[in-house]
Amino acid sequence: MRIRKLLAAATVAGTVLTAGVATTGTASASNLADCQGGQYVCLYYNSSSSGYGAVFVQGSDISDYSGYHFGESAYGTRGAGVSVKNNAASVDSWYAGSFTVYYNSGYRNCSYACQTIPDYGFRDLNSTMKNNNAAGFFG
């Protein structure tokens, strides 16, 4: 996953050098998958070993994933339309800071369980958090 991110960064850097100015249009969806190129995290319906599947792109804190749903991703549609709450298996962060997934709604409460994803990191959720995600916070 780290190599994929470095290649995407190199592509953007090369575009800046040759074009002089980077624009949002330069990093098109055909070149980048799901969250790349923005300060977002992607929660995936499946783990990396299962091919990721559907995605939920998160760009701000969410204290309760109820009402949010996975959509089609660059990695497929398995899980599309399913609620994000208690159905995520992995997280891909393109955020320049840590991102924490919480077991309980009302984030910032790790009294039972939570898992922190480092900046620009990818993690399959651990056995406690997989399919037990209720909230997500950028920190």
Rank of each mutant, 00 (worst) to 15 (best):
V21S: 12
V55R: 04
Y120L: 10
A96N: 15
Y75P: 02
R123A: 13
S49N: 11
N86F: 06
D92M: 05
V91R: 05
F138C: 02
C35H: 03
S47Q: 10
N109E: 01
S60K: 06
T18L: 13
M1A: 14
L17T: 01
G79K: 01
L125M: 11
F99C: 06
E72Q: 14
C110W: 03
N131I: 00
Y44P: 01
G76T: 01
F99D: 02
Y44K: 03
T100R: 12
N132C: 07
A8N: 08
T116A: 09
D61G: 04
F137V: 11
G67L: 06
S105A: 15
S66W: 02
A89I: 02
T23K: 15
G67K: 07
T26S: 15
G25R: 14
F99Q: 05
E72W: 05
Y95S: 12
V16Q: 14
A33I: 08
F99T: 02
W94G: 13
A74I: 00
S111D: 14
V12F: 09
D119Q: 14
S127F: 07
N104P: 00
I3A: 07
D64Y: 09
D119V: 05
T116L: 01
F138Q: 04
L17H: 06
M1D: 08
N46F: 09
M129Q: 12
V41S: 11
S47W: 02
C110F: 01
D61N: 15
D119G: 10
C35S: 11
Y112D: 09
N131T: 01
N126W: 06
G139E: 07
D34W: 05
N86S: 09
V41F: 13
